[in-house]
Design a protein around this nucleic acid. Structure first.
Lengths: 346, 346
DNA sequence: CTGAAAGCGCTTACAG
DNA sequence: CTGAAAGCGCTTACAG
C-alpha cells in the first residue's frame, strides 16, 4: 500500500477561503479565541481538520525536531518492564529516536488522563506510544489510533483487538514447554501457581501446562492449580502455603512468572523445603532476578528486550504511515534450564 | 539573589541593527546559509548570542512545550540506576515534567557525543540533564553548564567540582555504620571487598570501614582489603576467591555494593560456606535484589529514589534560574539489618 | 557577499 | 461577531 501523497501544506488563507470566512477569523479559531460564533467555529474547525492544517510551529517541529516516542509503564520495579525498556532504548539509540518514559498516574484525579496524554502527544509532535501497562482500556487505545497516534501494546492483558498493534510472546507454547521439561525429569505431581486469572497471558500459560499434562496422560488435578492474585512474589508465597495444606505436596511447581517463583523459593526456604531437592521450580519471564537467585531459576524466557525492539520498530513504521503486516506479533519463548529443577526422586 | 529581569525578546531586526547589517543577512546566519562572509557571520553570531536571540520556534516551544528533562544512564541493568530513575519519575509526575531516558552510547563513534547532545538539548528546549553515568568527563559537564544547560550528577565517581551540582549519599558514614554493625555482632576479622578503587564513593566506604575498625582498636589488615574491579558481581566472586587463599578466612565481609555482596553470596554457596553461618555479609546500596536474595542481605541503604527526587528538584530550580544552596548534597544512608549477618560464634 | 524590495503567513486593533 | 487594513517577523529573489 502506498502512502497518500501529501498535498502542499494548507495555509490559514486557504482554509479561510474554503470555509468562506476571512483569515483573521480562522486565526481566532486556531488560537482558541472566544469571539467567534459557534456555527462559524464549527465550520472552520471542520475545514481545518479536513485540510490537515498545521500551525507553523507544528509544521516545523515535525521536520526539525528529533523523533520522540513515549513509553508508558506502571512502575519500573519489575525486571520485566526494565528489560522491555532496555530493548526499546537499545533500538532507539540506533534509530536516532529519543525515548520518553512516563509512569501511569496512580491517582484517579488523573493529571495524565488518556485525553490529556493524547492532546499532549499531538502538541509535542510525538511519534507514538508504547504501552507496557494495562492502565489503558481497549477503547482508550482505539481513541489514540483515531487521532492518528501510533500505539503498540506490549503483552496486553486482554486479547488485543485488530485495531491495536501488540507484541507478545508465545505464552501457550512456553507453558507447555515448561511443563514438558518437568515431565521429562520424571515429575507427575506438578502444580501451577498462576498470576492474574483473567489475563490472557496467564490463561495461555495455564492451558499450555494442561496441554502438556494431557498429552502425557497425566490428569490435571484442580487442587494443583492455584490462581494467584498478581504476577508478584506474594502470589508465590500464598500459593505455596495453599499447596502445603494438601495431603500430597507436588514434586514440581510451574509458576506463572519469575516473581511468583521467587516468592515460592523464599517461602520454601522458610518451611525447610529444598529447591530443587524437594521441589523443582520453573518460572516464567527469564528475568535477571531469576538468573541471580540461589539456586538460579529454571525459567521460560520471554525475549523481553527483543519485544521492546520489535515494538519500537513497529511503532516507527506506523509513524511513517506504513501498514503493519500483522496487528499481533508473538515472539518465541524458550526454556532456560538452571539449578531450580532436578530429576524426580522417589 | 534575584534572577535578572528578562528584556523583551530581541527580533532579527534588532540584532541586525546592533550588528550593523541588514535583517536578511542575520536571517541567513541564523539559517546556516553559506553566502555570508566569515567575518560578518562571526560578528552576527556574537550579537545573536549576546542578545539571546531565539527563533520564533524556540520562543514558542519554551512557552507552550511541556518541560522535558533528560536522564542519561549507562544501561538499565543494575537496580541502582532503576531506583534512581524511579525517584526521578515519581517527582516528575507530580511536577508535570516529562522524563527522557537516554543510554550512553557505548560505541566510540559517538552519535551522541556531548557536543551533539548539548546542541540537541538547546534545540529541543530541554530543561536540563541528570547524569547517572560516569561517561561524561568533568570538562564535558562544565561545558554543558557554560551553555546554560542545567546539569545534576548522581554520585559522581570523582569528587565533583564546585561548578557541577551533584547528589550523593553519605558513603563514609555508611561504611562506618556497616562495619560497626559487624563489630557489634562480635566480629573482628572483617574484610572489605571494594568496587572501582579510584571511585570517590568506594574510597569513602573503605575509609569508613577503616575508621570503625580503628575506633575499636581493631587493626586494619591489608590482606582483608580486596579491591574489586567494578561494583559488580564478578568482583564479589573473585574477591571471595582471594580471601579463601588466606590462612584465616574472615568471619565477616563488608562488600562495597549489593552486587558485589551477591557475588560473594553465590561463590560462598559454591564453596559450601554458609551465610551467615560461616560468614556474615553486608552489602551497600539497599537494592531490591539484595532484599530478595536468600538470605536477604544486610545492607547500607542509599536513599536512591530520594536521590533521584532531589536531583530533579535541584535541576528544576537551576532551570528556573535559582542558585542552588549547595553544589553538593549528600543524603543519609542507614544500615538495614536482614538475614545475612549474625553474631560471631567461636 | 550584501541589502532594498517584495512577499508570506499570521496576528492585532478596531470600525461596523 | 466579522473582516478590511495595518503590522510583525521572517524569508526569498535578485540587482549590484
Amino acid at each position: 500500500m502506498i502512502a497518500t501523497a501529501r498535498r502542499a501544506q494548507p495555509t490559514l488563507a486557504m482554509v479561510a477561503r474554503q470555509a468562506g470566512v476571512s483569515a483573521p477569523t480562522v486565526s481566532k479559531v486556531v488560537n482558541g479565541r472566544d469571539d467567534v460564533a459557534p456555527g462559524t467555529r464549527a465550520r472552520v474547525l471542520e475545514v481545518l481538520e479536513q485540510a490537515g492544517y498545521q500551525s507553523p510551529l507544528q509544521r516545523r517541529s515535525s521536520v526539525e525536531t528529533s523523533t520522540v516516542v513515549e513509553v508508558v509503564v506502571d512502575v519500573l520495579d519489575s525486571g520485566y518492564t526494565v528489560q522491555v525498556l532496555n530493548g526499546v532504548l537499545g533500538f532507539a539509540a540506533g534509530a536516532d529516536v529519543e525515548v520518553l518514559v512516563s509512569v501511569t498516574d496512580p491517582s484517579p484525579s488523573a493529571r495524565f488522563s488518556p485525553e490529556r496524554r493524547a492532546q499532549r502527544m499531538m502538541d509535542e509532535g510525538r511519534a507514538g506510544m508504547i504501552v507496557v501497562t494495562s492502565a489503558f482500556s481497549e477503547e482508550q487505545l482505539i481513541a489514540f489510533r483515531r487521532r492518528q497516534i501510533p500505539v503498540v501494546v506490549i503483552d496486553p492483558l486482554n486479547p488485543p483487538s485488530a485495531d491495536v498493534v501488540s507484541v507478545g510472546a508465545t505464552n501457550w507454547a512456553g507453558g507447555k514447554a515448561a511443563t514438558e521439561h518437568l515431565l521429562e525429569l520424571g515429575h507427575r505431581r506438578i502444580a501451577y501457581i498462576g498470576g492474574k486469572t483473567a489475563a490472557e497471558c496467564n490463561q495461555a500459560r495455564l492451558h499450555g501446562y494442561m496441554a502438556a499434562l494431557m498429552a502425557q496422560g497425566v490428569p490435571v488435578d484442580p487442587q494443583y492449580v492455584v490462581s494467584g492474585g498478581k504476577f508478584r512474589r506474594e502470589s508465590g508465597v500464598t500459593g505455596l502455603q495453599e499447596l502445603l495444606k494438601l495431603p500430597h505436596l507436588p514434586t514440581a511447581i510451574f509458576a506463572g512468572s519469575d516473581s511468583i517463583a521467587l516468592g515460592v523459593l523464599g517461602e520454601a526456604g522458610r518451611h525447610g523445603l529444598s529447591v530443587p531437592g524437594d521441589i523443582s521450580l520453573v518460572g516464567f519471564d527469564g528475568t535477571k532476578q531469576g538468573e541471580e537467585s540461589v539456586p538460579a531459576l529454571t525459567s521460560v524466557a520471554q525475549p523481553l528486550e527483543e519485544m521492546g525492539r520489535v515494538a519500537l520498530r513497529s511503532l516507527l513504521r506506523q509513524a511513517r504511515g506504513e501498514v503493519p503486516d500483522s496487528h499481533r506479533v508473538e515472539l518465541a519463548t524458550h526454556v532456560v534450564v538452571r539449578g531450580s529443577t532436578a530429576p524426580h526422586t522417589t
